[in-house]
Design a protein around this nucleic acid. Structure first.
Lengths: 217, 217
DNA sequence: CGTTGTATTGATGTACTTCAACGCCCGTGG
DNA sequence: CCACGGGCGTTGAAGTACATCAATACAACG
């Protein structure tokens, strides 16, 4: 099965040997997290709902067949895989070479840009149903140091983060702190014009359970 | 232009704000490093020859057109993008959560598996035309700490690395130290069967210069 | 009412960075 | 032939950004 996120956040992560979790990607409404792997191959990551989610389910073999018969559909899969890879590369740079505060700032900037492209953020404010443990697993730091970095961003009046909503007060300085390149995803370019997404029947998953299990509930 | 590596190593990297370089991927013979980005979009990374290389050049617009007319070709592009993304995810885990020694071990394991899949490694020994600065930029650590980690691997008799050749003495323990999952790329699966690659005219690039520039020489 | 999950703070430990120096090899030029 | 310099690997010592351990506070909840 392949899933399209309709509401909520879904993470792509892996359990590391010492029991910790490294989050590699947050899927937002409009993303298809299971398309990060080839339908013929076993999923090499954990896909997990970070909040209450609505998902649409497709048969991945059918999707795959579609892509072979209609090149333009295959092309969209390809382009989406390239965007996944591009975001991954940015995360490598992030966890590889930047300080805790920068990583955090960069993550907030990235989510802002992606959510805005889908119309899910307004004036630098967006729903972000994650707790500090989730954030620390994403940026690869201890929750304690993560907490202190978040405080630092607050202290500098760059943002507020409460009740699952992030509000950016000073975009320019946040971009600066996170060394964020706003155009890196090229989300504004015409290759993404595919028309509106049609309504689909959806099932509901409740928060914090693995998607595959949640779906079967 | 799109390039196919015929000989040598090519890195995908980005200059970070403080003048450092984060390497995100090593392309080996058989890889097409420029296919990590969409041909319609600006390249968002630096592509750099790490050694003397032979490359084959294609017009990327033509490749792109090919993929629209022949779905199976598009499918290969897609699958290759998925593998890029999968390797990227592994690198995120690597730089995010593992110690210096583990990162290094993991990198050596990954290259062994990939090179072996192309017939470029034998009995755990392969050409690796990189110096310690390159390696440290890939694993995101200072060259000094990288050097000490390499010494640790040598001290444990896991490998030797000299004259651009890596030889693994104890694969099982190296896999263990690097927490490497040998099957993670699924390189043995049938989706990769595409027949042999035909001979193509090639140009030569000399080491350590950006590919685009090298090509024009 | 205790229990559980989450945010926060302080104190201590450590893995890594940075700075500085040295040695080796090898190419270049006197 | 030797002198010089640059690239690369290696070592020691000092500094720092992070992790770990431990404790508290607070809200939600059965």
């Amino acid at each position: 099965m392949a899933y399209l996120v309709l509401e909520g956040f879904v993470s792509t992560s892996r359990e590391v040997e010492d029991g910790k979790r490294q989050i590699m990607f947050f899927s937002i409404p409009g993303d298809m997290p299971t398309l990060m792997s080839h339908p013929d191959l076993p999923l090499d990551t954990d896909i997990q709902a970070m909040s209450a989610c609505r998902l649409a389910a497709f048969d991945s073999r059918e999707l795959y067949g579609l892509s072979l018969h209609f090149p333009r559909i295959g092309h969209i899969f390809w382009a989406s895989a390239l965007v996944f890879a591009s975001i991954h590369r940015e995360w490598i740079v992030n966890v590889g070479h930047r300080s805790a505060v920068s990583r955090l700032a960069h993550l907030f900037c990235e989510m802002a840009v992606r959510l805005e492209a889908y119309g899910l953020a307004r004036e630098g404010s967006y729903e972000m149903p994650l707790n500090q443990v989730d954030l620390s697993d994403a940026i690869g730091l201890s929750r304690i140091h993560m907490n202190r970095s978040l405080q630092e961003l607050r202290r500098q009046n760059l943002l507020t983060f409460e009740n699952g909503r992030l509000t950016i007060h000073d975009w320019d300085r946040l971009v600066d702190v996170g060394h964020f390149r706003p155009d890196y995803l090229s989300l504004s370019l015409p290759i993404w014009r595919t028309g509106t997404i049609p309504a689909v029947p959806a099932r509901t998953a409740t928060g914090k359970t693995p998607v595959r299990r949640a779906i079967q509930i």
